[in-house]
Design a protein around this nucleic acid. Sequence first.
DNA 1: CTTGACCCTCTAGGGAGCTATAGAGTTTAG
DNA 2: CTAAACTCTATAGCTCCCTAGAGGGTCAAG
Lengths: 140, 140
Amino acid sequence: MTVATRLKIGDVAKQTGIAVGALRYYESLGLLHSERGDNGYRYYSPTAVHQVQFIKKAQALGFSLEDVGDVLNVHQRGDVPCGFVRSLLQDKIQQLEDQIQQMTAFKADLEDYRDRWAESQPHPQPGDICPLIETVPLTV
Amino acid sequence: MTVATRLKIGDVAKQTGIAVGALRYYESLGLLHSERGDNGYRYYSPTAVHQVQFIKKAQALGFSLEDVGDVLNVHQRGDVPCGFVRSLLQDKIQQLEDQIQQMTAFKADLEDYRDRWAESQPHPQPGDICPLIETVPLTV
DNA sequence: CTTGACCCTCTAGGGAGCTATAGAGTTTAG
DNA sequence: CTAAACTCTATAGCTCCCTAGAGGGTCAAG
């Protein structure tokens, strides 16, 4: 019987490409657990590498670390969090949709100004800073 | 001959709808100037209202306060900053374009996952947290 | 034994544009 | 005259995900 491999934080960092400081940060958020040796060092089992990769993958899906924590909590309760993940994912998609729409409308606005200002020689009024911008209406 | 109107910061705030704290913040960035009375109060001429509105309008075009400062500097040098403003505006449009493209591609990715995961009953492996997320490839 | 590569905790910072508070002085309406 | 409403400075906090540094202990190779 061999003792299970005990990884130090630097080993986990190397195997995952995540900085040591970030790993400690994950732990402070409760996303990653470690055992402490007598020297105070954090020790990890090889599954920790897998867990860090899980965090990376969730982030790649646009999940915040808080989201990851929520998923982990569902898992901790013994449930399979896939349904929860699906709904989170749908939320992210909807948020993206909304943001894209907003940005597209905003871009159209800006292009409108650009085209209107393309060759106009503005009529500066006393006190004006940029006579072009001065024509923008105040949204009150 | 009447003394020119001297506005206090609260007056400017009321007339522009910008919080007092924000006006002080603008001043700290050099975007808004005031004279000090013997009591230490900031006093503004009515053109300050116009200048604050200019800041608001520039922000409505997606300009950062730093951008506004740059525009103001051109103006301060005695130049008309409209050419500079046009090029800033084109930059903002381009940035929006890029961001929209990125977000659209990302959204397509997420929708891909969503559809693939729609009714799949995943095959949990020992150590898995959410078998769905586990299928996401690591971008290394 | 020494040197260097690790590890620890705690604190600060950053980006953007503010808001909020504390503790103090000033002005203004009644 | 008093009380409310205003003003001042200076500092901290917000969001998110870390990074960087100080000041110290621990461990492995030569």
